[in-house]
Simulated scan of single mutants.
Amino acid sequence: MPDPGLDDPAPDPAAGSPARPAAEDPAQPGPGPYGALGAADANGIALPAGFTSRVIARSGQRVTGTSYSWHSAPDGGACFADGDGWIYVSNAEIDPSGGASAVRFDPSGAITGAYRILSNTRQNCAGGQTPWNTWLSCEEVSRGWVYETDPWGVAPAVRRDAMGRFKHEAAAADPVRRVIYLTEDESNGCFYRFVPTVWGDLSSGVLQVLTAGGATSGSFTWTTVPDPDGSPTVTRSQVPGAKKFSGGEGCYYADDRVWFTTKGDNRVWRLNLNAGTYALAYDDSLVSGDAPLTGVDNVTGSASGDLFVAEDGGDMEICVITPEGEVAPFLRIGGQSASEITGPAFSPDGTRLYFSSQRGTSGSSSGGITYEVTGPFRV
């Protein structure tokens, strides 16, 4: 049935505006804002001039300075301010006993703690951060759940049934419209939004699906999913006209736009939420020459308006897509072709980028490595 009166509120001017206007055409290769990559460093990471890397944690090994053993198959992640320091949370994409862990840093970047924040769940892939400082950890299994977790590891995790049961991937919060966007990792998956009854409380609300035509650009609407439980009919098959996407992955919101990636066709999609339109921000089949970004997966953004897109395979790169519509490699991990890059997230001050190689040099989920890159990120 149609959207039951859940109209989007007017944009909040205090929510900010883009530092530079976002390009409307799909991004094309260019030198990027940071220039060429240098030789690989001691960690096997090639970076632009001025940037350095360090290893934060390795699966199955104690996090430096703590007694906590890091989880296998590190995946989606996010950073949370913690006084003058911060916390990086990371999912474990293993089934069974997935869950999520956290590492705490002091203002200098030194590690001060590590601990578990979610246990006894299945294949926790990506997720998303909420404005009220919780981490939404998503199960990438058929009729999976979303769990709301405490990055400080104090409050118990809560399963959020109203957010629907499907193969969840990533989530992104929109504080202007007071909704959570959700991707679905199916070859014929959908793009959803969850409208909480009360903003800040995910215990109840309405799950809706994006409805649109078959083109790669146009207008869209939201339609309520009749049965978010997804049984006996899966959520993606309940609404006629629901637009299908080939393997939904990362999701990121900023400045009245939401971007999400689809791995089946190597695309980055952009919704202009004020205009009610969608379009391609990147498509490797539309690139002139060799495509610098393939195997699109997790995505995050910086204060400058740049998108950072991690590759699942490809050249094991994180690529940057600028607001001007230029795409270029930002970093490359060497010697780990059997892995994928996951969990990119910036520290609250924007000077450090965290991410993982899910299977590291071994190609096994027990070989995951979590990294930090520090340098002159533009703001």
Rank of each mutant, 00 (worst) to 15 (best):
A49G: 03
A126G: 07
G85T: 02
C190W: 04
G313K: 14
N298V: 02
A22C: 00
D185F: 01
T261Q: 07
G30K: 06
G218N: 07
F191Q: 15
D161R: 13
A345M: 03
S119K: 14
R193M: 06
G289K: 10
P156E: 08
R359S: 13
S97A: 14
G189C: 04
S339V: 07
Y88E: 09
V320F: 03
F166D: 07
R58E: 15
L47T: 08
A27E: 05
E340R: 14
A275I: 03
A73I: 02
G128F: 05
V176C: 03
P31R: 15
R160I: 01
A254V: 02
T52E: 15
P131Y: 05
D95N: 13
D25C: 00
A242R: 08
E249D: 15
F105E: 14
A49P: 00
A19W: 02
S59T: 10
T64V: 09
P21Q: 14
E148N: 02
T322C: 04
F245T: 14
V89A: 03
G205Y: 06
V103H: 10
A57P: 03
S357L: 06
V373T: 04
W259P: 07
V63K: 02
A100D: 10
S101D: 13
V379Y: 02
P323R: 08
G325W: 00
A27W: 05
F308D: 01
G44T: 15
L207E: 08
T134G: 01
M316D: 14
I333G: 00
E139S: 08
E184H: 05
D265Q: 12
V198Y: 10
Y34G: 09
F191V: 11
A110P: 00
V225F: 07
K244E: 12
F194K: 13
S53F: 01
D84A: 14
S364K: 12
L202M: 12
D8E: 13
D229R: 08
A39R: 15
F330Q: 12
R236C: 04
P11M: 11
I45C: 08
T64G: 09
S356C: 07
V239W: 09
R58L: 12
E372F: 00
P196Y: 10
F105N: 13
I87N: 04
A212Q: 10
S108D: 07
Y192D: 15
D312L: 06
F346R: 07
F220S: 11
D41G: 02
D185I: 07
I45S: 10
A310E: 03
W135C: 06
C79K: 10
D41Q: 08
F166Y: 15
G248C: 12
F377A: 09
T183W: 07
D256M: 11
D265P: 01
A23R: 13
E93A: 10
T66P: 06
Q358R: 15
D255G: 00
G295V: 11
N124L: 12
I180M: 15
G76N: 08
F245E: 15
N124H: 08
S304Y: 01
T211H: 07
F191T: 12
F105I: 10
F330P: 04
I321N: 06
T351H: 12
T223H: 05
G113S: 06
G65K: 12
G301P: 01
E148K: 05
G5F: 08
A345P: 00
T221L: 12
A78W: 12
A303F: 00
V373D: 01
V320A: 05
A275Q: 13
